[in-house]
Design a protein around this nucleic acid. Structure first.
Lengths: 236, 236
DNA sequence: GTCTATAGAATGATAGAC
DNA sequence: GTCTATCATTCTATAGAC
C-alpha cells in the first residue's frame, strides 16, 4: 500500500547519506580528498557521454560499467547511488564548462575577438556543450527536487550571462560597439545558441556552422561593428 | 550471453507486428478505422503530458494508467507496446502542431500581422510547443532507429520552415519587408524560438514573454519594418 | 471493453570473497 | 580496489474472467 505510493519518487528512500559537497563518497576518498583521481574522472566522463546521449532513466548502471569495462559493484564503491553518480557527473560537467567559458575571458583581447571566439567555441566544442544542454534539460523532470543539481546548472547559466554581457559592455566602453543593452544582447545571443544546440540534436540536417555564422553576421549588424576599429565614442 | 548483448536495444524483441500506419492496433479499431475515438484521444493526451514532463524511459505504463484512472492492461488493448504508444503519441502531437501552425497561415492577412501572430503563438501555446520540443529531443537517443517517428518530427520542422519563409517572402513581395533571404531569416527566427523553449524548461527564471518580444523587435529591425505600411517596392 | 492476477525480464543495490 | 553472486523491487506484457 505504501509501496505503490512511493513508486512516484524515484529516489530510493534508503541511504540518504548527507554531507556530499565533495564528488566522492567518503569511503572512496583518499587522503587528498579524492581530487585528481584519474579513475573517477574516467567514470564521470563515461557517465556524461551516456547520460547525455540517452538520459538518466534509460542508462543503466550496467551500461556504464560495461562502457568502462568494470563491474557494476565497483560503481557503488565510488558513489552512493545512481542518482549520486548523476549528481557528480553534472557537477563535473559544469566545472569543465566553466573552464571553457573562462578561458575565453581571461585574455585581455579585443571584445570583438572574444565574441567571435565565443561563437566559434560553440561550433568547435559542440559535443561538450550540447551534452550539457541535454543533461540540463533531462534533469528537469526526472530529478525534480534535487536542489544541488539545480543550483549547479543555474549557476553556470548565470555565469555565462554575466560573461557575455561583460564582453559586450567592454566593447561599448571602448567605442567599437553600438551602445546597446549588454545584458539583453547577451541573453539574445545565448538563447539563440541554445536553440542551435537543440536543433542539431533534433534535426538531422541542421547546419550548425551555418547557423552560428548567421548569428555572427546579425550580431555584428546589431552592434554596428564593421570589422574595422572605430573611432572612440563615435556614437553615444 | 546473447542476452547481455541485447540489453542495449531497449526494443523488446517479441511482437514486432508490422502494418502500423494507423494510430491503433487492429483489434481496437472500430468500423470507422479508429478515428474520432474519444477514449484514445484521452490516452494520447495523458501520455503526451507525461512523456514530455518526464521522458520515455521514466514514465511507466502504470503511471499512464493511473493518470487515466484505468488499468494497465487496458493500454495494451489499444496499443501494442509502450513504444507503440509513444509512437502514436508523437504522431498525434505532430498532427496538433500542424493545425496550430496552419491556422495562422490560412488567413489572407498582412504578412506582418501573421508574423506577429506566429511569435505570440509561441507564448500563448507555450505549453504545447515546449512539450513537442522536449519529446522530439527525448526521442533522439531513446529510440534511435525508429524511422517512422523520426520522419514525423522532421516533417513538422520542414513544414514550419516552409511556412515561415513563405510569410516573409510575401512581405517582401508586397514591399513591406526588406528584401532579405526568406529561408535564412525563417530559420533564424525558429532556431531562436527553440532556444526559448529549452531555456524556459531549464532556467526557472527565464522570461519567455520578454525573450519573444525581444526577438520581435529585432526582427522588425532586420526587416526594416516600422509598423506602418511602406510604399510599394521602396527598397529593392 | 475493462478488470484481476501473474509471468518473466531487467534493474538498483548489497554482502562478502579475493 | 575489484570481482562474483544474489536479493528485492519494479517493470512490461500476457492470460483469462467478467
Amino acid at each position: 500500500m505504501s509501496v505503490s505510493l512511493r513508486s512516484k519518487m524515484k529516489q530510493p528512500a534508503k541511504t540518504v547519506r548527507r554531507a556530499r559537497s565533495p564528488v566522492l563518497k567518503k569511503e572512496a576518498r583518499g587522503r587528498n580528498g579524492g581530487h585528481g583521481n584519474d579513475r573517477v574522472d574516467k567514470f564521470l566522463a563515461a557517465s556524461l557521454d551516456l547520460f547525455a546521449e540517452r538520459n538518466f532513466a534509460s542508462v543503466t548502471i550496467k551500461d556504464i560499467a560495461k562502457a568502462l569495462g568494470v563491474n557494476t559493484a565497483l560503481i557503488y564503491y565510488y558513489f552512493d547511488s545512481k542518482t549520486d553518480l548523476f549528481r557528480a557527473t553534472i557537477e563535473h560537467a559544469v566545472g569543465n564548462a566553466f573552464e571553457n567559458v573562462r578561458a575565453l575571458d581571461d585574455k585581455n583581447a579585443d571584445p570583438a575577438a572574444i565574441l567571435t571566439a565565443w561563437l566559434e567555441n560553440h561550433v568547435s566544442k559542440y559535443a561538450e556543450i550540447h551534452r550539457f544542454v541535454k543533461i540540463a534539460l533531462d534533469f528537469r523532470g526526472s530529478h525534480e527536487g534535487n536542489p544541488e543539481i539545480a543550483e549547479s546548472i543555474e549557476r553556470f547559466y548565470d555565469e555565462e550571462r554575466k560573461m557575455l554581457s561583460k564582453i559586450i559592455r567592454q566593447g561599448i566602453d571602448r567605442g567599437i560597439f553600438k551602445a546597446v543593452d549588454p545584458l539583453r544582447m547577451g541573453q539574445f545571443i545565448s538563447t539563440y545558441l541554445d536553440g542551435c544546440m537543440v536543433r542539431s540534436v533534433i534535426l538531422s540536417d541542421f547546419d550548425l556552422d551555418m547557423a552560428v555564422r548567421d548569428l555572427h553576421a546579425r550580431v555584428w549588424v546589431m552592434l554596428e561593428y564593421s570589422g574595422k576599429q572605430r573611432m572612440k565614442s563615435r556614437r553615444r
